Computed example of a mutant assay.
Amino acid sequence: MVEKRGAGLWLTHLGLIVGVAFIFFPIWLAFVASTVTNTEIIRPPMPLWPGDQFVENYTRALTAGVNAPVALMMGNSLIMAMGIALGKIAISLLSAFAIVYFRFPGRKLFFWLIFLTLMLPVEVRIVPTYEVIANFGMLNSYQGLILPLIASATATFLFRQFFMTVPDELAEAARVDGAGPMRFFFDILLPMSRTNIAALFVILFIYGWNQYLWPLLITTDPSMNTIVMGIKQMFPSGDDFAHWPTIMATSILAMVPPVIVVVGMQKLFIRGLVESEK
């Protein structure tokens, strides 16, 4: 490993500090705006230090909202993000396991058909997907929010590549010991894949949490709104009045769950990106 010494080390740390400050400063301004009065935000210059309205503004944000309380919308987003992340991982693990360890006609063709779906994002297939969900009566439901988004060609590809690096001797040893395919999957492959699963969970949770277009399309009931939709609905249109401290408090609250997931799974996330356990 190459180590910097002297001036190079200090310049590296200075660059990192400047970069972190550049990224963190807008978040700090949003937090400050969430702790002051609306008048202090509108009247320049905007304060750079937190005010005394923290409890009031955050209580108002959690219990109020344009169409639904923020606490309810955050719960909807949490259920949707968890459902999408866990669903994508479960389906991708099983599909990659079948493609790698089972011999059936058209195995490679099915894999490449799955892989080609990377070229078809939700926006391209949104009309037929909406029609299917509507015909099944899943509008304004968690099933409608989650099910159309739980297939993941990327995760299937990553798990397939990892399973192909697992020595064939492990499968042979499991077969000799009398373990069936699912026993081999649960007792050997899943424990070996835990860092990959953790890395994908972080990415997919944030993907599900930040969804906007699909929830906007299939939810007409305000009680099913997600937090990203709620923030957008809080912004004024025309001559409407906006309570900016509440909007900023909602924005800060919307960042909390993804930050907790990233920080809580940081070690596994990094290991899952840089190494493969065998």
Results as ranks from 00 to 15, higher is better:
F102S: 06
M229R: 05
T154M: 15
T195E: 12
G178Y: 03
R183C: 12
V127N: 09
L48V: 12
W244R: 01
T165S: 10
V18N: 07
S152V: 02
F97D: 01
D240E: 13
L213E: 07
A174N: 08
V124A: 14
P105Y: 08
G264P: 01
D187E: 14
K88N: 06
E277Q: 15
G264F: 04
G272P: 00
S34T: 01
A33V: 08
I227H: 00
S92Y: 00
V100K: 02
V36Q: 02
A242P: 06
L273A: 09
G264W: 04
Y101F: 11
G15L: 05
G8K: 11
A21L: 14
G87D: 02
V262C: 10
G144Q: 03
P50S: 00
I218W: 00
R5Y: 14
V55P: 05
V100R: 00
M138W: 10
V259R: 05
R107W: 08
A174G: 12
S95A: 13
L158A: 01
A174Y: 08
I79R: 03
G238Q: 04
V32Q: 02
L268Y: 12
L14K: 06
G65F: 01
S34E: 00
Y207N: 12
P50I: 00
D177F: 04
A254V: 06
I203Y: 11
D187V: 12
Y142W: 09
W10R: 14
G208K: 01
I197G: 01
N210F: 07
